[in-house]
């Protein structure tokens, strides 16, 4: 672990409090996309930001917001660097982030369900394994809590969400899908 100075910890908190532009209930720290803040002296910092999806259009808005809040905090020179590795995963969303998503009407991603890309077998196994996994750890309706929900579309209003419907209360809802 790289040592973090008190200043870096302070600036990480400031930058981390920026709300996500698409899911404003979450902060960047809760979403897990803010990797580090490196201070090169009190007036110059570099922020490492990782995208949820490679093509996520919100990254640029996030970078501008981070620059703005750090400028307002008195840092003159802010560089936001986009980093890809290690790849972001929905497991990086904090517990508080998950709670807020549910409260906002979005079923949070299930923890520890991220498929390991390396060495994963192709063929029917993926789908079948997913179905078997559904029974043990169902996506619950964020409105009524029912475990009886069905998938309507793998892709919803944004790339990170799937569209589902609750079979108990009949409400459609977004599910932040595991990545």
């Amino acid at each position: 672990m790289v040592t973090t100075t008190a200043l870096e910890a302070e600036l990480l908190e400031v930058a981390g409090a920026v709300p996500d532009p698409e899911l404003p209930v979450l902060t960047l720290l809760e979403l897990g996309v803010l990797r580090a803040v490196h201070a090169h002296g009190p007036d110059s910092v570099e922020v490492e930001l990782t995208p949820t999806y490679t093509g996520c259009p919100a990254v640029e808005a996030m970078a501008l917001d981070i620059e703005r809040v750090l400028h307002e905090h008195g840092v003159r020179d802010v560089t936001v660097r986009k980093v890809l590795a290690p790849a972001w995963s929905t497991d990086d969303i904090t517990d508080e982030g998950r709670r807020k998503l549910r409260e906002f009407g979005i079923a949070p991603p299930r923890a520890g369900r991220v498929a390991e890309p390396v060495g994963l077998r192709l063929g029917p196994t993926r789908t079948l394994a997913q179905e078997a996994g559904e029974a043990a750890d169902p996506v619950r309706c964020p409105h009524c809590g029912s475990a009886e929900t069905e998938l309507l579309s793998r892709f919803s209003s944004t790339a990170c969400k799937a569209l589902r419907r609750c079979l108990s209360c009949r409400e459609p809802f977004d599910h932040f899908k595991e990545l």
């Binding site: 590795a85 972001w88 498929a115 993926r126 789908t127 990545l179």
Partner: peptide, 16 residues
Amino acid sequence: PLAAKAVKEVAYHRDH
């Protein structure tokens, strides 16, 4: 780094 990131997205494309 890109491949490790993108393969997770492509898994959904393939599934679709």
